[in-house]
């Protein structure tokens, strides 16, 4: 089936099997490997991307469902060579170790800050409840999101 998806502002058109998962489309067809796969059960959030602005687990969306949609992945966050405040925040506050959950974590945090630009620590923890991290114990991630909230729009 022919589909078209606008990924990070760029239009992609491909003929795909209906069963192809969006995450495999992004990684294997569009060659955007920043979005990762961590589980088979829609629980780890490593594959989180923005689909028409909403954070979704791209392992639980068929590529055909995203036909005509706009997708933002981790590769689409930095603008003109400048890191997104969340990317900067994760760097400043050591919000990552192995980095595997990080793209999904950042995309979820993106959603959070879009809906709630100044979240409390509790709200940040709630905002990333769909994302598992085995390295950090989450505390530095919370600080990273706080950093981004403080430095956004400046």
């Amino acid at each position: 089936m022919k589909i078209g998806i606008k990924i990070n502002g760029k239009w992609h058109e491909n003929d795909v099997e209906p069963r192809l998962l969006l995450v495999h489309y992004l990684r294997d067809v569009a060659s955007l490997t920043g979005t990762h796969i961590g589980c088979e059960s829609s629980l780890c959030g490593a594959c989180t991307v923005l689909l028409n602005g909403d954070a979704v687990k791209s392992c639980t969306v068929l590529a055909v469902q995203a036909d005509g949609a706009e997708v933002t992945t981790i590769e689409g966050l930095a603008r003109d060579g400048n890191l997104h405040p969340l990317q900067q925040g994760f760097w400043e506050e050591h919000g990552l170790q192995c980095g595997f959950c990080t793209p999904g974590m950042i995309m979820s945090a993106c959603q959070l800050l879009a809906r709630n630009p100044h979240p409390s620590r509790g709200e940040i923890r709630e905002g990333i409840e769909g994302n598992l991290c085995r390295c950090t114990g989450y505390q530095h991630i919370v600080k990273a999101v706080e950093w981004a909230a403080e430095h956004s729009g400046k």
Binding site: S42, D54, K57, Q111, E129
Partner: peptide
């Protein structure tokens, strides 16, 4: 229900 991503979709 679930988490933010699940609730979105």
């Amino acid at each position: 229900i679930g988490d933010v991503q699940v609730r979105n979709k």
